[in-house]
Every structure is written in C-alpha cells, then in structure tokens.
Nucleic acid binder design. Structure first.
Ligand SMILES: [Mn+2]
Ligand SMILES: [Mn+2]
Ligand SMILES: [Mn+2]
Ligand SMILES: [Mn+2]
Lengths: 146, 146
DNA sequence: AACATAATGTAGCCGACGCTACAAACGGCA
DNA sequence: TGCCGTTTGTAGCGTCGGCTACATTATGTT
C-alpha cells in the first residue's frame, strides 16, 4: 500500500526559525557568561583577573585571553596589558541580563529540583529563555509564595 | 577602607562544571536536531532527502552535507550518494531523545506560554534539560491534569 | 638586588559549523 | 533521445572557541 503521507510533526518554517534563533543565542552565550563572571568577580574581589576568569569558566587562560579580545572588539570590556578587566557600559548592561540566571535557578528549585541539578541546568537553559517564558517563570514564582 | 570581600555569588568549581557541561551539550546538539528531523521526515514523507533537511534546519544544503558526513563518521546515519538518508540503530536511539522536546513544549504551554513562543524556546532549551529537571517537568504535567 | 613563582601574552594547531560558487548527477518530459 | 530544472557533491573560505608550548612581564621574598 502507498505511504500514509502524514503531516510533518512540526511546521517546517517554524522549526527552521527556532533553530536559527537557537544558533543566534549560542553566538551571544559566551559573551553573556563572561560579563556575568566579570561583574561577579569585580563585586566580590574588587577586580577581575584573567586567572580567576579561567578558573570560573573552566577553560585555559589562553582561551580567556582570546575571548576577551573578541569582547573588547565588540565593546563589552576594556582591558590593558597585565591589568584587571573592566566592563564597559554595554558590558554592564549585558551583565544585567544575569538576572535571568537567578530567576531560572529559583524557578527550577521551586519545582523541587535539587540545588546542584538546578545550578547545572540553569547555566545552559538561561540563554534560551525568551521574554514570555521568563515572565511565566516569574509568575510561577510569585504564585508559589516568593 | 578595604574591600568588603564578599563571597562570590556562585561557587567557582560548580560554575566551571556547569559551563563545561553546557559546552558538552552544545557539541551533541546538532546531532540531536538532525536525527530528530530525519526521523520526522522519514515518518511523514517516507524518506529524508538532503533538501528537505536543509529547509527544516534553516541552513544551506552544503552545511547539511558536511554535517551528515560527521554524523556518518560518528555512526548515527547511513547515506549513499544521491540517495535518501537513513538512521542507524544509534541514530534511532538518539532520535528517541526527541521525547524530551515534546515534554519541554508541553511543559512550557502548561505554564500559559503561547504556542509559538513555546516552540521557539523549546528548540534551544531541550538540550540543557537534565534528568531531574525532565522528571520535574513530567511531574508538573501530570499534576496539571494531563 | 636577585631570584623564583605567578600572571599574562603569543604562536600555532585543531574541529565544528556556517557560507558562496561552481560541478556533476538525476529525473521528468518534450 | 535529448534537454532542463532539481538535487547532490565539492572546493575553498571564514569565524568561533577550544588546546599546548613557549615567551615575557609582574610580583613577592629573601
Ligand atoms: Mn550560561
Ligand atoms: Mn544552548
Ligand atoms: Mn528538537
Ligand atoms: Mn534543538
């Protein structure tokens, strides 16, 4: 007998759009994690040094250096040789999106997920949470008593 | 006065581990999306052709071809020149992880997120949902009536 | 001041995953 | 059978983001 010719599970165009968006998000993901770490280090230690970043990000100091060059090129950080790293205006602004990170962690924990699993998952999830989803998470958190 | 020396917001080692895991997940992400698309196309159209994949994935046919070479190398698909693409055992198994995709979409929609936003976000989120989180999503879905 | 260690920089390598431009094979139809 | 549009293949390019190995600069201790 001939093929049943069922409709595709997901509309082609929408899936293509979704995947394109995901790839775009991955492109800015590194920048977000870096500025977040720099902001955190600056707040806690007074300055963000290369080695601290490497430790936090789980990469070598070489990778950090090359990535910082890209971040400098894109206007997120200002660096001088052998000095601490500072965020620019744009960098500060991008770092503020780290509030998303906090929200995601809190939301996962509110679902009964253990803290460690929540922390692990949040690091990847945060970059794919759109505005509607973020709003829904916050709504759920308010409803679930703080 | 000297620095307050507040503790870092997140423990260094845990953040490094989280980021490492996220990078690992990104490495398998492409493979997952491809085998999922191949399985879907095979089910709906009877066969998965290169051009269909390119359309679905939002990339050129060249990118698909190069990626398929990698998937073949890694044992997920079997291809012959100018023929349709088939999943291997391993490919089928990996495609089954597409159940995660469905769950994520359903979970997001159960939070009141509009279908389109849910579909867009899910494509990226799915790859960072660990077992505990997936279980929590399913739990929430059961609780929220089907 | 000298030295040793830590921090930072640089050269050069790799793989993944995008792309354009062009070439070859396939398939349907005049 | 021959032709033409579609599909598939390939050559060559670029960016990102990892790495090792080695060079240089800061820094702290004797
Ligand atoms: Mn992250
Ligand atoms: Mn991701
Ligand atoms: Mn998917
Ligand atoms: Mn996906």
């Amino acid at each position: 007998m001939p093929k049943p010719a069922a409709p595709p599970v997901r509309p082609t165009a929408l899936q293509a759009e979704s995947l394109r968006r995901t790839r775009r998000e991955h492109a800015t993901e590194t920048a977000e994690d870096y500025v977040e770490a720099i902001a955190d280090l600056t707040a806690s230690r007074g300055e963000a040094r290369l080695v601290d970043l490497a430790r936090r990000l789980g990469v070598t100091h070489v990778t950090v250096n090359r990535t910082l060059a890209r971040l400098r090129r894109d206007g997120y950080v200002s660096t001088r040789p052998y000095r601490a790293i500072f965020l620019t205006e744009a960098g500060e602004k991008l770092a503020a999106s780290g509030r998303r990170h906090t929200t995601v962690v809190a939301f996962l924990e509110s679902l009964g997920i253990p803290a460690k699993a929540a922390a692990l998952d949040a690091e990847g999830l945060e970059h794919h949470v759109g505005p509607e989803t973020l709003a829904a998470f916050e709504r759920h958190l308010r409803k679930a008593g703080k």
